[in-house]
Every structure is written in C-alpha cells, then in structure tokens.
C-alpha cells in the first residue's frame, strides 16, 4: 500500500506494515522525499537495510545549529555550562582547507561504522551494532571504562559526567555510562527520520539526507550514486554509514 500525503507538521502514521512514501514541500526549491519502511514492532531489525546519512556540506549553513538543538531537545540532552564535560551527540564544526582556503561547515556525530572500533574494544559488549547498522551503547552493561572513547577516531562519544535528570522515555541516559548519537533509533524503528535531519529540512537547508544505503531506490543511495560522497578518515576503512559531500 502506497499512500501519499502532504502534511506540514506531522506525517500520518499508517499501518505498521505499510510502506509510506511522503512527499513534503516545505519551501519553494526545497523538496523532500522520504521513503520509509516501518517494520512491525514485534520483528527484529535485519541486515536487509543499512541506515545511513548523507551530508552536503555546501548546503550546511555556517552558524546554523538547528540540528544540534533538535538533537538536544529530542534526546533530552542538557548542558551544565561545562563544555569540557557536557555531552554532545552532534556538533557543528567549521573547517578551512589549508591549501585552498575554502571554508566548510558540517555537523559531526557518530559515523555508524560498519566496522566500529568502539565495538571491537568494548570489554563487556555494551558497545554494539544493530543488524541495520546503527551503533549503540547498551547502558545496561556499560561499566563506564571509556575505552570506546579512546578508540573512536571521530570523538563521537561523550561520557555522562554528571547525574542526568528529566530523560525522555525513549532515550534513557545516565551518569557513569558512555553515550552517543543513536541515529534517533526510536524514530527509525517507527519509520521516522532522525531529529537533526528533520530540523535541517525545517530550517530550509536540506543538507542532510537519511535513508537505507542498501536500497538502490532510496534517496540517499540515488544521491550517492549520482554525486558520490566521502567518508571521514576513509584510510581507516571503517565503512562509515555517514557520508559527506563537498569536503
């Protein structure tokens, strides 16, 4: 069943087994197309999909932090005004090419590697990768040793340095464990997209595309096939799920 709907604020939730294709026009020239396959709640995720993200740094606006704010709000991340120890799941980075002087702005977060070093080094198996490629921390068995933070080439992880309060019911987080971007796994499991991607679209930048890297018909696959995308630290051969254009 394919259902097309135009909705500005909220997409209609269709039967769980249905394939939802929603085309949303939010501004002239910005056209979003989202194909999401919401799996039934009682079925395990499979390796038939691999979730990924493509970031077009040319569309990413310098100074815009819509993705960061959306992530913080979505996952209940609060700042204690201690930047060195505050948790950051996503951050904005401004770069200058030392050769050409070209300025680039991009969001940095967990790259959801196919071969994640954090998973390799975790002594208890708390650092784990789901079948669909999302890398998570099982905070139930995380002992807070921080070896994954030593191993991550992207500094994607944060340690909960202080007591966490007012957690979201879908994003449990607590002191003494390590955390990072979950690719908004609670939304993805319901056929949704990560909060940062939606916020980027809502801010009319459209610099982030989320989708299934294994589906050749997905937006992200088509865009990657057409214009390509690079991995950060490709030399490490981690096969990241997050790709960048324009760097």
């Amino acid at each position: 069943m394919i259902e097309k709907t135009i909705n500005f604020s909220r997409r209609v939730f269709v039967e769980k087994t249905a394939t939802v294709a929603a085309a949303v026009t939010i501004a002239p020239g910005v056209f979003l197309h989202q194909v999401a396959q919401a799996k039934p709640a009682d079925q395990a995720v499979t390796s038939a999909v691999r979730w990924g993200m493509l970031i077009d740094t040319n569309k990413c606006a310098t100074g815009c932090t819509a993705c960061v704010s959306a992530c913080n709000e979505e996952n209940g991340i609060q700042s204690h005004d201690r930047p060195a120890t505050d948790q950051q799941w996503i951050r904005k980075v401004k770069l200058r090419d030392t050769q050409t002087g070209h300025i680039t702005s991009l969001p940095m977060m967990c790259q959801h590697c196919e071969k994640p070093p954090c998973v390799d080094v975790c002594p208890t198996g708390a650092s784990m990768k789901r079948e669909d490629g999302i890398v998570l921390v099982d905070k139930h068995i995380c002992i807070g040793c921080r070896y994954c933070m030593m191993a991550c080439p992207y500094k994607a992880r944060s340690f909960a340095h202080e007591t966490v309060t007012d957690q979201k019911d879908y994003a449990p987080r607590g002191k003494g464990t390590v955390e990072a971007c979950t690719l908004c796994v609670h939304r993805v499991d319901e056929g949704g997209t990560p909060a940062c991607v939606e916020a980027c679209n809502a801010a009319e930048h459209g610099a982030m595309i989320f989708g299934d890297l294994k589906d050749p018909e997905s937006n992200i696959s088509k865009e990657l096939e057409k214009h390509g995308g690079t991995q950060l630290r490709a030399d490490l051969r981690l096969n990241t799920g997050v790709r960048y254009q324009g760097i």
């Binding site: 604020s9 209609v12 959306a70 979505e74 979201k168 939304r187 319901e190 056929g191 949704g192 909060a195």
Partner: peptide, 9 residues
C-alpha cells in the same frame, strides 16, 4: 511530551 517533529503521532 514527545518532540514536536516526531513522525509518530
């Protein structure tokens, strides 16, 4: 109290 941008209603 879900996020206003949440896809699931």
């Amino acid at each position: 109290k879900k996020h206003s941008l949440n896809t699931s209603s």
